[in-house]
Amino acid sequence: MANSIEAEKRAGWALVSPPFLYTLLALAVPFIVIVGLSFAGLEGGRARVPLAPGDAEKLYFTFENFARVLSEPIYRVVLLRSLIIAVCVTLATVLMAYPIAYFVSFYVAPSKKALWIFLITIPFWTSYIIRLALWRTILGYNGIFDNFVGIFGIEPMNLLSNGALAITITLSHAFAPFAVLPIFVALEKVDRSLLEAGQDLGETRWTTFLRVTLPLSMPGVMAAVLIVFIPVVGDYVTAKLMGGSTTPMIANLVEVEMLKKRDHAMGSAVAVTAMATVAVISILFVLLNRRFIGSKK
């Protein structure tokens, strides 16, 4: 028997090794390089990958990259803007996704639920770039939105000129399906007799929702928040196409440092700062949730 267990172990390793190798090369190695670069200084120049021949001995450890990220206002302003946009997008997405998930879970016949979930994924069928172009058409000066409000005698608003708003609208639309799915799954797991019990014990439908359904679906809401918030902070293409040059987000700054200024050390420091900020916020969010909503697992 020991033999077959050994064989099974080997088979297990064989199964996981390709994705493991891939993860190591595509995630862990670049991550270590970026973190390393963010703490790197080079005598008489800037640390970069690959290093010029003979530069290796001129490398030194430093906090100066981070000192610049924290002291120069541009980085703070842009990081704060990214966070605010991400919070707005997350709020809008989750608030819109919850009723949709609730409707599909509670009001759609069981045999039709899969179809509804499938329909919710339809936005993914179109390339994101095309969707961005469409939003530009909708939100731009004299675009579809302006024409629509024009019917009521409202002057063209040119929402596209407000970069942060345009970015928020576009991202909220793009991430909605990601938020619907985890909330839907959490709602599906709520035992329906609990809702009857709530009403039996004197609560109305609405107060039963607040005391029973909502707390029980919080794990799904938390998952949705994290799934939307984390990638939105680091979004690059939306800000580039919807925000123009006036409202960059943090990823756009990383691009400027990395590709335009060719300053890999500064680019890495900005990226690591953003990553650390997101990590801290996410962990705080999860902890606060445990503390106050208390999903007693």
């Binding site: 007799s193 009857e196 009403q199 014990l201 109305t204 208390g294 007693k296």
Partner: peptide, 28 residues
Amino acid sequence: PANVRPTNMVFQSYAIFPHMSVEENVGF
């Protein structure tokens, strides 16, 4: 409606609220 009827029910599945303690359930 059910929430104002002078009846209370013990459900087949018991329908104990899983996110609450015993006393929170009883005091619901």
